[in-house]
Nucleic acid binder design. Structure first.
Lengths: 223, 223
DNA sequence: GAGACAATTAATCAAGTGTATAATTAATAT
DNA sequence: ATATTAATTATACACTTGATTAATTGTCTC
């Protein structure tokens, strides 16, 4: 992965196109994903990105024009994938018919939660959560582009299943659902640190707990 | 508030102690609170803080030593206040006896949600949420100092009311509760933007919705 | 094989960063 | 009155940042 791992590392590096094929573009996105997730937009430098690939900083500009654009590409790459899978799963539910609130919650959360299984995906989940805290001028347009369609689709679907709740309440609950899963899967929740009682492995079961929590919340107050 | 508003603004400013009393320290905390909330730690410069008070950048170092320390002071000033009020309200409930899950949820959330009423408090709420996304080396110690005690106290109280749920589950649900209210009250949720259907005022009712959502979630799956 | 194109490093630039220090003025203590 | 302390501006320093440009080397097309 890191270029220092191959045989070229021992030669003094010279300018000019290297032999063979390279696909630096993907590597830059991966490295930037980790760094933006950990340190945020302002806290990440293009030099850090380049350094992680053992490459000249100018390469980032060569492939991605500028920092802003790099950030957008990192966010949209996986953001649109999640959004698309949400829409697919919603369409599947509607085609099948007879789904309930829990089915909707699962269809909404699982496409994101699935990324938890590998380290690179976890980095994106953290960035995904972090994006909502970045300054409006950086994040609002991105969030609108990536998430508006699916958020509205799910809110409407929830509203159909909850005819007694005013639309405002449904949107508020969806917001709470989003906040809950973002935080839980951002890897910043200190769950591991809080629960030190020996046997308890706090991450196990987290998806199930999140879906149950969100489902109960979406239904609203118990009668 | 801004010193450019008083009569001194028109004179050319000179070095030296100004006449009368000054309390710049509070003003710096307020300005930094807003900026850290909006732009994060890395995205905020000490010059921005100073500029907002129309004051020399060296004043920030004079009052707060360095950027790191300023951040800590901003976070702890209100963070400890919230934590203390949570502990008080928990003690009140326990003294009174006969409380339920909803009472606990309300006692946990309301001390933070109360800050929503004024602009400066909303800035802190945003910072409060953002803190959880800042790099671990900056935020973990702070979060531990400020929130560990009350989080454990509430988790244990919840566990007593929910004897069927394993402790791991209780902590997971508390985590989801925290994520939900942090996001909802961070002012970054785009609730206002998403819901454009005329009459609906999305912020009205939000505290009630959050408490109901959290209560239902804490109870776990419906039977 | 020659020229166009692709991918890389080296070097640089202007702007901005946190921080430190000295000079300056007012308030306070003796 | 005088010395000390408090609060402020001015200035500067060493370093980092995003971005640009030129030089260099490999690959592809004809």
């Amino acid at each position: 992965m890191s270029r220092s791992a191959n045989k070229k590392a021992l030669e003094a590096r010279r300018p000019g196109r290297p032999e063979g094929q390279t696909n630096l573009s993907e590597g830059i996105l991966d490295a930037a994903e980790v760094l933006f997730a950990e340190r945020g937009y302002a806290g990440t430098t293009l030099r850090q990105v380049a350094e992680q690939l053992d490459v000249n900083p100018a390469m980032v500009a060569y492939y991605f024009k500028n920092k802003d654009n790099l950030f957008r590409e990192v966010v949209t790459r996986r953001g649109y994938a999640i959004s698309a899978e949400r829409m697919e799963r919603l369409a599947t539910l509607k085609a099948r018919g007879g789904y309930d609130v829990r089915d909707l919650v699962a269809a909404f959360i699982e496409p994101a939660a699935a990324l938890w299984s590998d380290a690179q995906g976890r980095a994106f989940l953290r960035l995904h959560a972090r994006l909502h805290m970045e300054p409006a001028e950086l994040s609002f347009e991105l969030r609108r582009m990536v998430h508006n369609e699916s958020t509205h689709a799910y809110a409407n679907a929830f509203a159909e299943l909850l005819p007694d709740a005013p639309l405002r309440k449904v949107y508020q609950r969806v917001t709470l659902l989003v906040g809950a899963y973002l935080y839980a899967f951002s890897g910043t929740s200190r769950l591991g640190e809080l629960l030190v009682e020996g046997e308890e492995t706090p991450m196990y079961d987290l998806l199930e707990t999140t879906i149950s929590f969100g489902t109960a919340g979406m239904y609203g107050p118990r009668p």
